[in-house]
């Protein structure tokens, strides 16, 4: 049931509620249709898409760590052409908005993907991923350098005419500087945080647990870092911020809204409870009821 009190706007993006699913944790949405009504969600950010097909990194790509997991998938996907021809027709009529996560190793690759997605009628936005820690070239490389972040976002901005979200990495000394640089380059909103660069070791075998040695940590373990980043960034830019990192219930989502996020993305929790994103949406309505709050936007940025 739709609750009008949960409506939020991320710039030009009108969301029926502030709960989106995070890229790489929700497939193309269809993988979850058996478990929940996709229309209960505020939005779906689909798997990272690159210029060409990528096989990703070698197995093992997953290590479980205290209250979290480290992945090293490495942007496995079939490329933007396949996405436009084979996947888009199957998901174009999904209500709510499907947002495409755009990834690459070079400015040219980001632009190629953004340009192709720009032509897809029912995709209202892209999330530009300048923060993937699992690829050798590009990815996070763009997101850790103020000048490079500015350049890639500026170039994509010239080509992409709709809502441009830029996804930031926490693996930097000063995330506010990067955020401001990306804002100046023309981003319409920011999403943060991507995974935290991490590592896991098997003491018995005396070997790393991932084929790539390092990977990206997600899950409840990173929530305090994510909250800090969202709080810092949202108070220092003039564009909306979408918060994510370790959210597993409505209370966690509320915390992100309180520190300044206009919406949230649910990631790792989708693996544990495939219904969680819909349940969090319901939990937000309950929260408003319990506290006698008129609408969800009333609590955004209270801290």
């Amino acid at each position: 049931m739709e609750d009008n009190r949960l409506k939020v706007n991320i710039g030009s993006l009108e969301l029926k509620n502030p709960v989106l699913t995070a890229s790489g944790t929700f497939g193309y949405g269809t993988e979850y249709e058996d478990f929940l009504d996709l229309s209960a969600l505020g939005g779906i950010v689909v798997k990272g898409t690159t210029g060409e097909r990528r096989e990703g990194n070698a197995y093992p790509r997953l290590a479980e760590t205290p209250s979290g997991m480290i992945n090293a998938v490495g942007l496995q996907n079939k490329g933007v052409e396949y996405f436009c021809k084979e996947i888009y027709p199957k998901i174009k009529d999904i209500n709510p908005n499907v947002i495409v996560n755009v990834s690459g190793s070079s400015i040219e690759e980001y632009c190629k993907v953004a340009s192709a997605i720009n032509d897809l009628e029912t995709i209202p936005a892209i999330e530009l991923n300048i923060s993937c820690p699992n690829v050798k070239k590009g990815g996070m490389g763009f997101g850790v350098d103020r000048q490079m972040a500015f350049e890639v976002v500026s170039e994509v901005r010239k080509i992409y005419k709709k809502h441009l979200i830029v996804k930031l990495t926490p693996n930097v000394t000063n995330i506010v500087e990067i955020a401001q640089s990306v804002e100046k380059a023309g981003a319409n909103s920011l999403s943060l945080i991507n995974t935290v660069l991490a590592m896991a070791v098997d003491s018995e075998k005396r070997k790393p647990l991932l084929s790539t040695i390092t990977g990206g940590l997600s899950g409840p373990a990173i929530k305090p870092i994510a909250l800090r980043c969202v709080w810092q960034v949202s108070h220092n830019v003039n564009i909306p911020v979408i918060g994510m990192g370790g959210i597993r219930n409505a209370a966690d989502a509320i915390e992100f809204l309180l520190v300044g996020a206009k919406a949230v993305e649910i990631g790792t929790a989708n693996f544990i409870n495939p219904k969680i994103s819909a349940e969090i949406t319901e939990g937000l309505s309950d929260y408003l009821n319990r506290h006698g709050i008129e609408k969800i936007t009333d609590i955004i940025g209270l801290i």
């Binding site: 790489g24 929700f26 497939g27 197995y59 790509r61 997953l62 992945n71 496995q76 693996f271 495939p274």
Partner: peptide, 11 residues
């Protein structure tokens, strides 16, 4: 991690 083809970890 997921068992339903979303995480792409078990390849």
């Amino acid at each position: 991690a997921c068992g339903i083809g979303a995480c792409l970890c078990c390849v």
